[in-house]
Structure formats: C-alpha cells, structure tokens
C-alpha cells in the first residue's frame, strides 16, 4: 500500500447519545486520518469523547441510546458505516485490532488463554486447531511472555496485570491487523510495566508496519510514542498537530493548561498552574466555545461564537478565536 494514502480516514464524525435527560453530543465533528506505520494520539480528560471515537470506528456504539448521526469512517477506502454487522465482524479483530484499558475485564476468566486465542484466530483465518495453537505460541513469544508453551494452558487469573495486557495485545495482533486501536492500554499498569508495554508497541509497529491510534490522558505517553496528536475537549478537537510541534508550540489554551498542570521532575519546583473549573456537562454545553468558562484568555466573542478548527501552521490546527486570523497574520 502506498504510504501516502491513509489507512483510516474519519470524516466529520458525530456520535450522539439520546437519553431521557436530552441529547449528549459525545463526539461532535472530528476529522482525522491514520497512515500505515504511524501512531496517532488522542488525548483528553474523562468525557472528552476519546473513547467514544474509538468505539465508533469499531462499530461498538450501543444503539439505542447511541447513534452515529453524521460523518464517514473510511477504512482502506471503504466506509465502515455502510457495512452490515456481519461484514464488520470480519474486519474487527482481523484488520483492526483493539486493546482496552482493563486487562482484567477484557479476558474471559473461565477459559484458558489458549482457548481464547485459538477462538479469535479461527474466527478470522481458515486455520486448523493445531495451526491456530502454533500461531498462539508464536504470538505469546512475540509479546514476551516467558515459557509460552506452559502459559498457554493457564487461566487469566494466573497472570499479572502486565502479562494480561500482553496477552490482550497478542490477541489483538493475532491476524496481523493493519490498524490497532489502543484505549488507555497502560493506565491500569505500574510505570515499570508501562515502560515495557510501550516498548512492545513500538517494536510491534516497526515489525508489522501497523497504524496505531493511542487513546490516553497521559501527555507523557503521547510524547513517548505518538507521531501526531489530537487534543479533544467536550467532543471536539481543540488542537491537532505533530507531537513535537505540540509540545514546543502548542497554542490552544486548553492544551497549554494541560501541559502546565502536570507536575514535572525538574530541578526547580513551580506551583502548578491548574485549569480552573470542571470539565463541562455534555448535557448542557454553553453557547460558543465549550472551553470558554474555564479559559484564562476568554474574550466576549468566545461566549457567542463556537470557533472552527483552523490551520495556523503546516499541519497544525487550532480551534480557538485567539488564532482565528493567525495564518494570514503569519504570512503577511
């Protein structure tokens, strides 16, 4: 495949939930693409819509109450939204692998690892049981589980959290997916184990030339593994940029606020600059920019106009009225 054509192209995605208390616009207009061999980070706090984005791509939005009301999700040029559940099932787990946050609840406690791995492989590939078992061994080896032959017949509870997450990654990689969606894959793990898992992701990506969508709240993780990153706030992108550029020249007040509010291990200690207020209630978003009530640089116009995502520099998009005219300003 040509590396310039995106593997996944999400266009103007809107996923809403229709609840008794009103419509929740969990994802409200996002666009992004992922190329083969690239890692895209999606960062945001709880309720920002980052997980719903992942679920939308996978066709896992519970309906009702949820519904993708607008937009397109093009995977290798085909719109996943036009596919039937049966066709989706062929893609999910085979072409698109997924790893979720909690390795404790994503594995079935009453089946051995072998059974769960063989089941996944045979659901997608025309393998005999023996072939599927060999493939499972190979995968466990790949993700660094010691003594895979013995461990294959173990139950999930016999593994530690880090080992379970490795098994989840092994299952996700079972059919050589071209896209891997990882939703907070290291959040439940300790730092030394997190470092091992992130290292594993990097290695797998190099070997398999996968595209990865890494969903996280941790800017540290983003800085370590992502090529490009989208910062989300209240269902919309706040800023979208190459990772290095975001850390060096981040522009959106929310992005900057996030960066200043994480404690850093530097020789001098500064007081943390917290973002005031709380993340908005998606049931009743304010008119205008949804970050305005917490923003330090809020202007009168912010309360009325909901800004568009504008390109302020090459491949650097910001959704903020402060930068509304900056591209023109830079060029003149």
């Amino acid at each position: 495949m040509d590396t310039d054509t995106p593997l996944l192209d999400v266009v103007n995605l809107h996923t809403h939930f229709f609840t008794k208390a009103g419509t929740v616009k969990a994802v409200d207009g996002i666009d992004f693409s992922v190329k083969p061999g690239e890692t895209l980070g999606i960062v945001g706090e709880s309720g920002s819509g980052k997980s719903i984005t992942a679920m939308s791509i996978l066709g896992l939005i519970p309906s009702p109450p949820g519904k993708i009301v607008d937009g397109g999700i093009y995977f290798k040029g085909e719109n996943l939204l036009d596919k039937k559940e049966k066709q989706l099932r062929q893609i999910r787990g085979k072409e698109i692998g997924m790893v979720f946050q909690d390795p404790m609840t994503s594995l079935n406690p009453v089946f051995t690892v072998e059974k769960q791995m063989v089941e996944t492989i045979r659901a997608h590939e025309n393998f005999s049981k023996k072939q599927a078992r060999d493939r499972s061994l190979e995968l466990l080896n790949l993700v660094g589980i010691p003594d895979p032959k013995k461990r294959l017949t173990s139950y999930p509870h016999e593994f530690s959290g880090g080992m379970r997450q490795r098994i989840m990654i092994a299952i996700a990689l079972a059919c050589n997916p071209s896209l891997l969606i990882a939703d907070e894959p290291t959040t439940a793990l300790d730092v030394t184990i997190q470092a091992q898992i992130l290292d594993l992701f990097r290695r797998m990506q190099r070997e398999l030339d996968m595209g990865i969508i890494m969903i996280t709240h941790d800017l540290g993780v983003v800085s370590e593994v992502c090529d490009r990153v989208m910062v989300m706030y209240a269902g919309k992108p706040a800023e979208f940029s190459e990772t290095k550029n975001l850390f060096d020249h981040g522009k959106h007040p929310y992005t900057l606020g996030l960066m200043n509010s994480i404690p850093k291990i530097t020789p001098e200690k500064h007081k943390l600059e917290a973002i005031d207020g709380v993340p908005p209630d998606l049931h009743g978003l304010p008119k205008g920019c949804s970050f305005a009530p917490r923003c330090k640089h809020v202007m009168e116009s912010c309360l009325n106009i909901d800004p568009e995502l504008k390109e302020v520099d090459n491949n650097h998009h910001v959704r903020c009225l402060l930068y509304e005219d900056s591209k023109e300003a830079v060029s003149t």
């Binding site: 730092v191 030394t192 470092a195 091992q196 540290g220 993780v221 800085s223 990772t243 290095k244 994480i262």
Partner: peptide
C-alpha cells in the same frame, strides 16, 4: 520509566 512530556529529551531507559 516515567514517561516524560517532552519529546526533545532523550534519556537512557532502564527496562526492568
């Protein structure tokens, strides 16, 4: 092992 929010900073990492 602490991931650092600074892509410019290259460090030597001890992987346990």
């Amino acid at each position: 092992a602490v991931p650092e929010a600074n892509p410019d900073h290259e460090r030597e990492r001890i992987l346990l």
